[in-house]
Amino acid sequence: MDGDMQPTGMILEVKDLRKSFGSLEVIHGVSFTMSHKERLVLMGPSGSGKSTLVRCLNWIEPPTSGTVIFDGTAVDPAKGDIRKLREDIGMVFQQFNVFPHLTALQNVALAPQIVKKTPKAEAEKEALELLAKVGLSHRAGYKPGQMSGGEQQRVAIARALAMHPKLMLFDEPTSSIDVELIHEVLDVMVQLAEEGMTMIVVTHEMGFAKDVADRVIFMDQGSIIETGSPSDVFEHPQQERTRSFLSKVHLA
């Protein structure tokens, strides 16, 4: 949409974000910023809070405290900002969460019609273009139950793109996909990155992080413990916990 406009300023500023479940705090005051078109990869052992953190960014998990400034505006749930925020932030889930009662085409065309009031014909035309973009033109009339995990996840990516998000969140997008199909999904994500999509990706795919990420954030036990370019973090990790995690991922 914004074509050749040069982005200025930050798309996202997170300040002292905390999240508790009951009395258990799982995110301990995390802060980071992100500029337009930046590709950020979030890594860390399971239970480190990386999924919870990205889920806080679009209020799927409401943060307990802290500030999120998205595209220049501090998000204020009391003012009803959340739905607008979610229109602007696309999310791709580990379990795909495609709508099983709808075809691939309907999955992609639904939200623009009911949230943005796009006319049906227009929404479906764009949905077909998006399905072509993720390599699924031939599956437009299929329901999720008739598709592989890799195909379902690509439908989910197209579905998120249909809202023209300014930021895409990927929460372990390949963790539930058969190994031989993971590349289908990663290829689409690489293509998005090349087109200039701003994205945060929670993943253990080192190859993807090396090729695509501008910056890697390493989390452990609810805090950011290390951040830097992929080569800095992967080749010269400063923290012992980062080193130990990376050695296990390399072996796997």
Binding site: R83, N97, I114, V115, R159, M163
Partner: peptide, 17 residues
């Protein structure tokens, strides 16, 4: 599954939608 509601919310849908 809860993920269905989460996906709907993540696309900007209201509770009713």
């Amino acid at each position: 599954p809860k993920g269905q509601t989460e996906a709907a919310f993540s696309l900007g849908m209201s509770r009713m939608q």
